[in-house]
């Protein structure tokens, strides 16, 4: 396949960026999107040019590192698929593809297509954990977890924190990510003691970062590679309002 790429190039956090055109004349349909970029980069390096910087790690759709806006869709045109698991067979010979970094005030560009997502880490640090006592291991199955709750918690826990939800949201809102993290602990017994405080602290941190606010467009849900449901956003809103109005959490 022969492709034309329009790629965002930016030398550093404070540098001016611009779109740059590249020809990719030798793309195989079996390649993943990132492997296609590897080939482009190899040629750039051979010609003594700077390779295109992009985030990646596991390349099997589980780590959340890859983060490309492909033709105006976070992680590209294939639903429930990270950019690293997107294969070139979903494109046609002769296609022109636009590749941009996540765009959000809370995710500043570091270089080219790589952004700083440490705002997500700070949200987790503010309450995305449970406190436990160390000591001898409790008996297995001592704490009962209803199957429906375990399943739902697992759906929320599938979030890999890639930031596609923020990237796709017209408001740059982080409600899908935060609600998944709030809910996967809030749904199980181990998460109950800190449930009110958790949602209040994590929402406060989310709001302290430069994210926008949800207007229920459902864009996030549509691009989430793990298909996290906006039902978790409703759940977080409910937990948050309840905690702020009815509990002592602050």
């Amino acid at each position: 396949m022969k492709l034309t790429l329009n790629v965002w190039r930016q030398a550093g956090p404070d540098a001016e960026g611009r779109m740059q055109r590249y020809e990719a004349p030798d793309v195989s349909p079996e390649m993943s999107f990132l492997e296609m970029l590897d080939v482009v980069n190899q040629r750039l390096e051979e010609n003594g040019e700077e390779p295109i910087v992009f985030d990646h790690d596991c390349r099997e759709g589980i780590c959340g590192a890859c983060s490309l806006m492909i033709d105006g869709v976070a992680h590209g045109p294939q639903a429930a698929t990270t950019a690293c698991q997107l294969h070139m067979r979903h494109f046609k010979d002769g296609d022109e593809i636009t590749i941009e970094p996540w765009r959000a005030a809370a995710f500043p560009v570091l270089k080219d297509l790589m952004v700083d997502r440490s705002a997500f880490d700070r949200i987790i640090q503010s309450g995305g954990y449970i406190s436990i006592n160390t000591g001898s291991a409790p008996d297995a199955n001592e704490v009962l977890v209803p199957k429906v709750d375990a399943d739902q918690a697992f759906e929320a826990a599938a979030c890999i924190g890639c930031g596609a939800c923020v990237a796709q949201c017209p408001n740059g809102a982080a409600q899908l990510f935060t609600s998944a993290k709030v809910s996967h602990l809030g749904l199980v017994p181990q998460g109950q003691p800190e449930r009110d405080q958790r949602v209040v602290s994590m929402v406060a941190q989310m709001e302290a970062e430069a994210f926008g606010s949800c207007t229920n467009h459902r864009e996030c849900e549509a691009v989430c590679p793990k298909e996290i449901s906006i039902d978790f956003i409703a759940r977080m809103n409910r937990d948050y309002l309840k905690a702020r109005i009815m509990s002592r959490a602050k």
């Binding site: 869709v73 959000a104 408001n171 549509a222």
Partner: peptide, 20 residues
């Protein structure tokens, strides 16, 4: 106002997926 500030640089290309 908050939401405008959260996306200071817009995309060269954006394809809405679910917004009506």
């Amino acid at each position: 106002k908050l939401n405008r500030k959260a996306r200071p640089i817009s995309y060269a290309k954006r394809t809405p997926q679910a917004a009506t």
